[in-house]
Design a protein around this nucleic acid. Structure first.
Lengths: 102, 102
DNA sequence: CGTAAAATGTCCGAAACGTGACATATATGA
DNA sequence: TCATATATGTCACGTTTCGGACATTTTACG
């Protein structure tokens, strides 16, 4: 019954609430952009385009919801993002509102 | 604390999840577009533009999530929308997914 | 050595989208 | 009668957004 909409719902959410989903991912576990793409692909079957994700990440950092530090692991330079207290406040308020509404 | 984000969150949701919010309104109480505008304005302080709302409503009907019937009340022709079973299924699946995720 | 994967970045053209204007019809109250 | 409120619709224009391409660096593997 409900599973018929699953795919379009997941698509809808990653189209419209990508910023929220990114904050959620980073909050659960600090990580870098490339890893998000892999996780989202295997968990949800959605291919995030890095051409959209990286500018979004930089944007979220500029607005103070995320902070990043560069980490070099086996020669690979990664930008590890973690959520800021401002980001946590935003998410909590967002979740609260969604729960009330839905 | 969290109230600082309230306004931008409400804006964010009505920007990105307007279709979901419309389905929610109609599900709770069948109504016409103009009334939605009034309700959203007084409940959330958001001004929905009818130039965006009416095409959306027609779209949701075309996709089978809403159905409408014309009603004339004191000379005013209203298009009363009610949610279809398909619309209910979509909302239930959507809410379920959101709850899992958030 | 050459290819694929990891990792991030920018940018252009296309598509999607919202805003505000134009349009129409009736009712109400001053 | 005139303005305002109710009620819905379309459309052009500008903006925002998005996909795919271009670009670069290093590692891993055959």
């Amino acid at each position: 019954m409900t599973q018929g909409f699953k795919k379009e719902i997941v698509r809808h959410i990653f189209r419209n609430l990508l910023d929220i989903m990114v904050l959620k991912l980073v909050r659960a576990d600090p990580m870098w952009g490339y890893k998000m793409i892999k996780i989202v692909e295997e968990k949800y079957g959605i291919k995030l385009r890095h051409g959209a994700l990286y500018p979004l990440l930089n944007n979220l950092e500029r607005k103070g919801f995320l902070r990043s530090k560069k980490e070099t692991k086996r020669g690979r330079v990664r930008k590890i993002y973690e959520i800021t207290s401002k980001g946590i406040q935003l998410m909590d308020a967002y979740n609260e509102f969604l729960r009330e509404q839905i």
